[in-house]
Design a binder for these strands. Structure first.
Lengths: 136, 136
DNA sequence: ATAGCTGCAAATGCTTTGCAAGGCC
DNA sequence: GGCCTTGCAAAGCATTTGCAGCTAT
């Protein structure tokens, strides 16, 4: 669960990630981090930022989503081939995916417990475990 | 685990799915179902069928992968935005995804046990549970 | 000043589609 | 014969990239 943050806190967050708080980047970061958990596609975020009256190109939205992800501020979730979601909740947790609407929703971590992980192949380590419950 | 099947069995399997055993479809079906579990992308299967000396277009590979999936002979697995895998194992099971190589591997079902499912949102039912352990 | 950032448009990569020709029952 | 299927090429879609001009520090 992300805390609601002020503009100033977000600027600090960006600086900590070594990302300049440019006008465009700040607008995107505020849309993403000022309120609680969000799951957005690049298109959706672009629509949001345009709706908020700011001018940001789609390419810049993509660039920034990836920079945020690299910085650990976002997590990419793949539910659908051909579309990426970005989740502001970077803690370990799982998802419901509403097939009808394309909406992605967090599952509270305690609600779904994974048993012991299976034996991994030789010389490998777990990077991440993705659990998606597809519902309709 | 899929049984090894003869050409004749595969033809029957196609007929049962109301799919004509055309030269191209049969070639694809044999590559997919004659040996055990396979995880392929359209590109890979296309390369396989060409390597086997048959002429099948990529469009036809896509068409057939989707027809097989609709018929319940394959299951589509999404691991990577922009690329679809098709799994000949249609039973409930989970996957390792090797990030370095792009290879997908089954996890024996007993090796990973899911606890109780979380409470679902109102008026929804589970279509499928996908578990992908990303390793490197 | 300068390294980083933005925006456009073009390019990419995978996938789908339109449609004429061919093949199975 | 009639309907399904195929193959090509074109279109589609989400995403990435090249690059000239802009901006934060």
């Amino acid at each position: 669960m992300n805390t609601i943050r002020t503009r100033t806190q977000i600027i600090e967050r960006l600086r900590a990630a070594k990302l300049r708080p440019t006008r465009q980047r700040l607008a995107l970061a505020r849309l993403l981090f000022e309120r609680g958990d969000r799951h957005v596609t690049a298109e959706q975020l672009h629509a949001d930022v345009i709706a908020a009256g700011m001018k940001v190109s789609l390419a810049t939205v993509y660039n920034n989503l990836h920079q945020f992800t690299r910085a650990g501020l976002l997590r990419e979730v793949v539910v659908d081939s051909g579309r990426s979601y970005f989740d502001t909740n970077t803690a370990s947790h799982f998802h419901f995916f509403h097939e009808a609407t394309g909406r992605l929703e967090d599952i509270p971590i305690d609600d779904l417990v994974l048993g012991a992980l299976p034996q991994l192949p030789e010389n490998t380590s777990v990077k991440r475990v993705d659990v998606i419950i597809r519902i309709r």
